[in-house]
Design a binder for these strands. Structure first.
Lengths: 268, 268
DNA sequence: CGCGCCGCATGACAACAGTCATGCCCTGCG
DNA sequence: CGCAGGGCATGACTGTTGTCATGCGGCGCG
């Protein structure tokens, strides 16, 4: 387990790259923003407030607990959403790729962000839209409202799924499920719809994930994650290919997930 | 851990009490429905489709995986939302009291319910509204849309919180947090805003919860839940009062939550 | 009224997994 | 080019917790 908070837990003012503002914001690459901007009149009203932010490698977009004043969307690269439990353990709630809205519940309810958002690749880009602009659009109804609704609902369902998976008990099973989901077709991927699928039919996870990330994703320690991954590599269930993970035997992994329960029977 | 699925996993047609239809639906006691019905014209259009269902003790309202055709709201009593992991373990995602919307993401996205809903007290009442009626209202925008949005966002935030709590590792800490949250002021209660607070200032959890429920809520086994509760009773942290749990020493419980980590140090 | 069921309780035992310690390999940098 | 740091790997050890087994008390029902 990693110790210590992420960053300092407070809002760290970051440089907003003024040169990349408004007109260069890739609205078309973000379905939700496209829906929002499809009303031409609103498009003009909105653009001046939208900001693009380019992230350095482990830069924090916003921190858990901070007042949520913006809706954020990933435009490029990858962002991880991290929550820190009372007790100190960091957990990755989701990985978000281009097009995803990140942590919508916060700005929706006017409360604070329920997790921290941290860039995973240098040069990742995030778009920020002031919450009033989005909320005004929501109250107006229409297609955008429905899309945003679907986005929150989707996240909520993924989180429900994760709660029941985290309770499953065995680290091995959680890790197997995680790997299968991240390599699966986008619409079935659990951590996030956009994580880890680049269109190829091979079962590869192209996202650059450290063993610590894997551990944080399934709520275990670094060492345990390493041990399981090493064993699976020896048993030819998976393989490393540079930074990516290649699944050699998906059926075996699926079997691991379904393994009945741990047997603590006395040896006969 | 409990074995076997809840019910049969399929939709079980239940008796809908025709005598309690429409006019007797307590719309006023459910804030979201009040918002929906506040538009008089829509009220008339809606009422014929709304159904009230009275539940027997452990009756299933809907099952995980079933196609989500209705939005459901608790009118009376209490309902638990349960998810079953691949591996077989049941986990209670939330407890829902009167006024709560249950499992909104399902009917929103047109997918299936992400959990099963099961009545916890005989005579609990649930209101069902066809999804098209609600979705039509959403697209129209306005106050109702915003309220429904807040409801999903709230649930999503609670689920995020639970993911990071479930990963916290120690059963004791999860259980302590659970008990504190359920006894706390409604707006801070984690499992659900409406569970476990009846307005009194004493730290009591009036909800009728078995030890198995507690175990399912914090992802552990029945025996472990019993052991921890017994120990806390001996140490005068908590007390039984019939079916209710009374918190005698909230500070001590809070200390348990903050306990650094398990120490697996060799004894010196 | 006694039987059976359910909820609660407790002991024994072993496996799982977290922590600490140590070491290797690679990469970037002074 | 040697050093530092980050990522990965592995062993040793122990606390936690799941599982099985057994028992008790209350309650509903035939």
């Amino acid at each position: 387990m990693r110790r210590g908070p992420i960053g300092d837990g407070l809002f760290q003012p970051r440089v907003v790259h003024q040169s990349l503002l408004t007109t260069e914001v890739p609205i078309d690459r973000i379905p939700l923003l496209r829906a929002l901007a499809s009303n031409a009149e609103r498009d003009h009203a909105l653009r001046p407030h939208v900001r693009l932010r380019v992230l350095s490698d482990h830069e924090t977009v916003f921190s858990e607990g901070q007042t949520a004043e913006y809706f954020h969307f990933v435009a490029k690269g990858r962002v991880k959403l991290v929550a820190v439990a009372e007790h100190g353990r960091e957990t990755i709630l989701e990985l978000c790729g281009p097009g995803s809205a990140i942590c919508i519940p916060g700005p929706t309810s006017g409360a604070s962000y329920c997790c921290s958002a941290i860039g995973m690749e240098p040069g990742s880009e995030v778009v920020a839209v002031p919450r009033e602009d989005v909320l005004a659009a929501v109250e107006r109804g229409g297609e955008f409202t429905k899309s945003l609704f679907d986005a929150v609902a989707g996240r909520c369902m993924r989180m429900c799924q994760r709660v029941s998976e985290m309770a499953a008990g065995q680290v091995e099973q959680r890790l197997a499920r995680l790997i299968l989901d991240m390599a699966g077709p986008p619409e079935l991927a659990v951590p996030n719809a956009n994580a880890g699928h680049d269109g190829s039919s091979t079962l590869r996870i192209p996202v650059r994930l450290t063993r610590q990330d894997l551990a944080d994703l399934c709520g275990t320690s670094l060492e345990t994650a390493i041990r399981v991954m090493s064993r699976w590599t020896k048993e030819r269930l998976i393989e490393r290919e540079g930074r990516a993970i290649v699944i050699l035997d998906p059926e075996a992994l699926a079997r691991v997930c379904r393994q009945p329960v741990r047997r603590a029977r006395p040896t006969e």
